[in-house]
Computed example of a mutant assay.
Amino acid sequence: MSIEAFKQRFVLDTSLFLTDEIRRDDESLEDAVLRLLELIANARLNLGISCYVPPTIHDELTTMLEARDVSEEVYSKLNTWVIRKHPDRYAVSIPANVVYSFVDEMSGRVDRGLRVSEKAVRRAEASADEPLEDHDHKTEVDAVISQLREKYRDAMRTGVLDSREDFDLLILARELEAGVVTEDRGIIDWTEDFGLRYIRGREFPALLEQYLTAVDPDSRRTIE
């Protein structure tokens, strides 16, 4: 089969790099990310497969990697082999039905968020502002507030397009006619509305490995 048949573009989500699903047994996060980046590099060198991230995703990813204290090698390979590109928000069109569905979805979520808040207020009114038995500094009201945050976040954000990063990912993929690589259930749901193909992050390393088996070992190029 011609190598031209494998040429594709993918737009990568932060969740691809951070999910435990890409790790092998006893493999650290850093080792898993380095192995993934090596696959991305080899796929680009040998098959012309290009992987992109919008700058907002790149910033989000590097911030999370910094918090996990990964080595400079990770950033070097990330910046070398994963292309940063701003989505063309002015040129890419979005079907009116997508916008309509989003507005309808958010309207329903606002109603659910209000109901969650109302229940929390009633619980707080009935709660004593005394420390909990198993916590010296947390009162019953504090516990209600904590539960409110969790339930409100679930009502308002789970499964919905709720950040610039998610939006940029989808717009860039639509612009490039690229596949979306993510573990985020909400983004996966939106790929259907945007008419995009997607692959779960956990499946992406195996996909690249399978593609690379088509390369003649004698002519295969590596980054090592």
Score class of each variant (00 low, 15 high):
residue 180 V to C: 06
residue 86 H to T: 07
residue 163 S to A: 10
residue 192 E to F: 10
residue 27 E to M: 01
residue 208 L to S: 10
residue 114 L to S: 12
residue 55 P to K: 04
residue 195 G to V: 07
residue 61 L to D: 01
residue 79 N to Q: 14
residue 209 E to A: 10
residue 51 C to T: 13
residue 95 P to Y: 07
residue 1 M to K: 10
residue 190 W to S: 00
residue 141 V to T: 02
residue 12 L to I: 06
residue 1 M to F: 09
residue 176 L to Y: 03
residue 223 I to N: 09
residue 33 V to S: 00
residue 41 A to S: 13
residue 202 R to E: 15
residue 222 T to V: 15
residue 186 G to W: 03
residue 29 L to R: 02
residue 60 E to D: 14
residue 221 R to Y: 09
residue 137 H to L: 14
residue 203 E to M: 06
residue 178 A to F: 03
residue 59 D to L: 15
residue 36 L to F: 04
residue 167 F to T: 07
residue 96 A to P: 02
residue 190 W to P: 00
residue 72 E to K: 13
residue 180 V to H: 02
residue 173 A to P: 03
residue 188 I to T: 13
residue 72 E to R: 14
residue 131 P to W: 07
residue 81 W to A: 01
residue 68 R to E: 11
residue 48 G to D: 13
residue 64 M to P: 00
residue 44 R to W: 09
residue 85 K to Y: 04
residue 38 E to G: 15
residue 99 V to P: 00
residue 156 M to K: 04
residue 122 R to T: 14
residue 16 L to Q: 04
residue 17 F to N: 01
residue 174 R to P: 01
residue 30 E to V: 03
residue 202 R to F: 10
residue 103 V to T: 05
residue 34 L to E: 06
residue 158 T to G: 04
residue 11 V to D: 02
residue 105 E to R: 12
residue 123 R to Y: 03
residue 60 E to Y: 07
residue 30 E to R: 06
residue 48 G to A: 13
residue 38 E to D: 14
residue 66 E to M: 13
residue 187 I to V: 15
residue 160 V to P: 00
residue 194 F to A: 03
residue 186 G to T: 07
residue 171 I to L: 14
residue 48 G to N: 12
residue 195 G to C: 07
residue 53 V to R: 11
residue 136 D to N: 12
residue 57 I to R: 00
residue 166 D to T: 02
residue 48 G to M: 12
residue 121 V to K: 13
residue 164 R to Q: 14
residue 117 S to D: 03
residue 16 L to Y: 03
residue 125 E to Y: 14
residue 2 S to A: 09
residue 207 L to A: 08
residue 98 V to F: 04
residue 212 L to G: 04
residue 188 I to G: 02
residue 195 G to L: 06
residue 64 M to H: 15
residue 57 I to C: 05
residue 51 C to S: 15
residue 28 S to I: 02
residue 22 I to Q: 00
residue 40 I to G: 02
residue 131 P to G: 08
residue 15 S to L: 06
residue 154 D to L: 09
residue 50 S to T: 08
residue 100 Y to K: 15
residue 58 H to D: 09
residue 115 R to I: 06
residue 8 Q to N: 15
residue 4 E to S: 11
